[in-house]
Nucleic acid binder design. Sequence first.
DNA 1: GCGACAG
DNA 2: ATCTTGTCGC
Length: 243
Amino acid sequence: MSRACRRSGLLGHVGDPEHGWPDAPAELAELQAELGARSPVPWRPPTDRPTRIGGCFCCFPRGVEGFGERGDPLWVAAVTYEERRRLASVVRTDRARAPYVAGLLAMREGPALAAAVAELTVAPEVLLVNATGRDHPRAAGLAYHLGAALDLPTVGVTHRPLLATGDWPADAPGAAATLTLSGTPVGAWVRTRAGRRPLVAHAGWRTDPGTAVEVVRLATGTARTPVPLREARRLARRARALR
DNA sequence: GCGACAG
DNA sequence: ATCTTGTCGC
């Protein structure tokens, strides 16, 4: 076991949201490199029954723009859905562990998201995360990292890639176009609504680009944003409004 | 070296 | 992330 893993307690503490989130940039980068080098067993959605799909999201105080800093208050929500039914939800407040730095988002939001998801009374089978996965300098973006920390398959969903490149898909619902990083497929643009900007579905923990696109399609209702992610975002922002 | 760079 | 502004559509 590496120093980063031993210090962070990632190995041997799978599922414990208090572990696996080093708060020093060099240590996080070391852990990301180690996680990114792994090849976790691929997961696929069941074909004979509905999939329990979760989502998590955190938001920050309004009126505060920029990169933020350690200690920023935040509101975080997590939900579990099965088809159109919400089976569980969690809303809580927490604190950011660091400012936002591209490539080190896990340091800012990781512990809060992990804690919220861990409190769900009905666990999802796959979790949507507002972050990249293998599209990352060390192939271990927050969506991928969160899945490793929680021992849960994950799919990232963002407005744009971090490093990967690729053309947009056709303007038809469900259309997808692969995004690659150094020749490796790491995700795909997905058109969830005709006439709207496509989202990026990111390969995460135990998911490849094809599975990421499939989960986003399964989770999408009438809105551009997949239902569990949209609902987690709504709950987090509602909690902020009640502050 | 400099800018760009998920949220 | 959050904000502002503008535009289209229900």
